[in-house]
Write a protein that binds this DNA or RNA. Sequence first.
DNA 1: ATTTATGCAAATAGTTTGCACACGT
DNA 2: ACGTGTGCAAACTATTTGCATAAAT
Lengths: 136, 136
Amino acid sequence: MELRKVGLKVTHPRLQILRLLESTERKHLTADEIYRQLNEQGDEIGLATVYRVLSQFEQACLVRKHMFDDGSGRPLQACYELHDGEHHDHMVCIETGDVVEFVDPEIEKRQKEIAHKHGYEIVEHSLVIYVKPLKK
Amino acid sequence: MELRKVGLKVTHPRLQILRLLESTERKHLTADEIYRQLNEQGDEIGLATVYRVLSQFEQACLVRKHMFDDGSGRPLQACYELHDGEHHDHMVCIETGDVVEFVDPEIEKRQKEIAHKHGYEIVEHSLVIYVKPLKK
DNA sequence: ATTTATGCAAATAGTTTGCACACGT
DNA sequence: ACGTGTGCAAACTATTTGCATAAAT
């Protein structure tokens, strides 16, 4: 069991949240979406617990947290996805809310070079491209 | 006067905030930092006004707003900088808080290509590299 | 004089925390 | 039985808003 491996007791809320993240179509969910979905399907789990569990999962590297926002000050909410071990960047469609994941080795390489050129090493980075569908 | 040009009355708070942004060493300031600095130098300006003015400035493209956060759930606060017309990305040092601006044409190009490949066009994008000093 | 801006205090949104009770081992 | 985890409500933080007053043109 994943949970036990990372030192977390196997409780109902933890199990249900993990299962939801594993089985969901949309891979990026907000705390509130998770809360609502679980309660709709009959699991009575507090919102505070959802937050607590998600942050435990994050620390255990079971889950990754993102703050999507395009710098234009829209309402902002964290969203969470299962951690697959691989790094990737995100493209968010501002019309549909769809999230596409991608990795571009060239972009990764340039970033590293730029950091070095300035005397730094990369700890973390976040690239989000906000897009809309091409009209044909 | 910049302010009049963008259709804003020339008021004390607006003037002082603009001047501060023009003259500050650290180019990226939070609303609260601006509020504090102005009040320290004797201008009695409400925090709400700072927010209001900054968002007017943003809409007038005098100022750009950023939400730096590395997806690791740290406290998050918007920061603002004077808008110079040019787009650039940011590198934030997690030890000193220093912000370095950069542009890489190659990265920009790849982003556009990736968006197109998925049937999208770019509306906006945000790249933040979180770094720490290279130990020599 | 009229319109717009300001300061204050209260509202909001997302998230976190304190505490008494409930659950996993 | 013991130590954790949970739900609820209250606290918190960054930001926004309503309203009566004050300033800009």
